[in-house]
Amino acid sequence: MTVSPTTRRSTRQRDVISRVLDHAEGPLSVGDLLTRTQAELPGVGLATVYRTVKLLCDQGTVHPVTLDGETLYEASGRGHHHHFSCTACGRVFTLHACPVSIPAGSVYPGGFVVEAHEVTLYGRCPACAAP
């Protein structure tokens, strides 16, 4: 008997990985997710993190974010937002205010019709910018 992803039982590993993503200040790489999960569950392995992230993506509770060619993951349902990538420490933060006002349906020269937009700002986060 095959169990669908939406009816799979909850596990401690899945619960911790979900909680780590829910409380992250921005999207996380699989490596960051593994490190943070292992702080609570030292025995969790990389394969478990990959399987869990895939399951959570399939369920729609997590979605991938691609920044600079790397796939990161964040909890879904956070509404319209963008990201800030710190060039000093490498952390990525969620920005809840949109720095660009481009309404869906806008038409740019050449006939490009905007459906959505993504913005990533780069610089130093408050901790790295502090004197």
Rank of each mutant, 00 (worst) to 15 (best):
M1N: 11
T2R: 15
T2M: 13
V3Q: 14
V3F: 15
V3I: 14
S4Y: 13
S4G: 08
S4E: 13
P5V: 09
T6V: 12
T6Q: 10
T6M: 12
T7G: 05
R9M: 00
R9P: 07
R9H: 00
S10T: 04
S10K: 00
T11L: 01
R12F: 02
R14E: 14
V16C: 04
I17M: 12
S18C: 05
R19I: 03
V20F: 04
V20H: 02
V20A: 05
L21E: 01
H23S: 14
A24H: 03
E25G: 13
G26Q: 08
G26R: 05
G26F: 05
P27R: 05
L28F: 06
L28E: 06
L28I: 01
L28A: 06
V30F: 04
G31D: 14
G31C: 02
G31M: 08
D32G: 04
D32N: 04
L33I: 11
R36M: 13
T37C: 03
Q38G: 03
A39W: 01
L41E: 10
L41Y: 02
P42C: 02
P42D: 03
P42H: 03
G43M: 09
G45E: 10
A47Q: 06
T48N: 04
T48Y: 01
V49Q: 06
V49T: 03
Y50F: 15
Y50W: 12
R51S: 06
R51N: 12
T52N: 04
T52E: 03
V53D: 01
V53E: 03
V53N: 02
V53Y: 05
K54Q: 14
L55I: 05
L56Y: 02
D58P: 02
Q59C: 12
T61M: 07
V62Y: 01
P64Q: 12
V65K: 07
V65W: 07
T66S: 13
D68S: 14
D68Q: 12
G69R: 11
L72V: 00
L72Q: 08
Y73K: 02
E74L: 08
A75E: 09
A75P: 04
G77L: 09
G79T: 11
H80R: 11
H80M: 15
H80N: 14
H81G: 10
H83P: 10
F84T: 08
F84L: 13
C86H: 09
A88C: 07
A88R: 07
C89Q: 15
C89E: 13
C89P: 15
G90H: 15
G90S: 09
R91M: 11
R91H: 13
F93I: 03
F93D: 12
T94K: 11
H96Y: 12
H96L: 06
H96V: 10
H96W: 08
A97H: 07
A97S: 08
C98Y: 00
P99K: 11
V100M: 08
I102Q: 09
I102M: 15
P103Q: 00
P103Y: 00
P103G: 00
P103A: 00
A104L: 02
G105M: 09
G105Q: 00
V107S: 07
G110V: 09
G111N: 13
G111V: 12
G111R: 07
F112P: 10
V113S: 00
V114W: 05
V114Q: 08
V114R: 08
E115C: 03
E115N: 04
E115H: 14
A116E: 07
E118W: 08
E118G: 08
T120F: 10
T120R: 13
T120S: 14
L121T: 10
G123Q: 07
R124M: 07
P126W: 01
